[in-house]
């Protein structure tokens, strides 16, 4: 069954590609698989997407982490708080 995965985007990336991007996924996807999909969707922002860390359910994760469609996924560009 096809499901939609929502990805939250912030800062400049959020302005460019939207604050919430949806992709369809059939089963599970790894973080590195997700990054590849996003780069295919937005090739002009490849560099930006690659500079992001990925958070799943509000925690930074490694590239081999498996994402499920009900996870809260976010692209985290280099931070600049403080």
């Amino acid at each position: 069954m096809e499901r939609k995965l929502k990805i939250l985007c912030f800062a400049e990336l959020g302005e460019k590609i939207g604050k919430c991007v949806e992709i369809s996924m059939e089963t599970e996807i790894t973080v590195s698989g997700l990054i590849e999909r996003l780069i295919k969707m937005y090739p002009e922002y490849q560099h930006s997407i690659q500079s992001c860390m990925i958070a799943v359910n509000q925690k930074y994760v490694k590239v081999d982490t498996v994402i499920r469609s009900d996870d809260q996924v976010a692209l985290i560009p280099p931070v600049s708080g403080g």
Partner: peptide, 18 residues
């Protein structure tokens, strides 16, 4: 910590750290 700042200057705006 996921916080970002956008600087508004005399010659436009840009995101810091990005």
């Amino acid at each position: 910590v996921p916080i970002w700042k956008k600087e508004y200057g005399e010659d436009g705006a840009n995101w810091v750290g990005c």
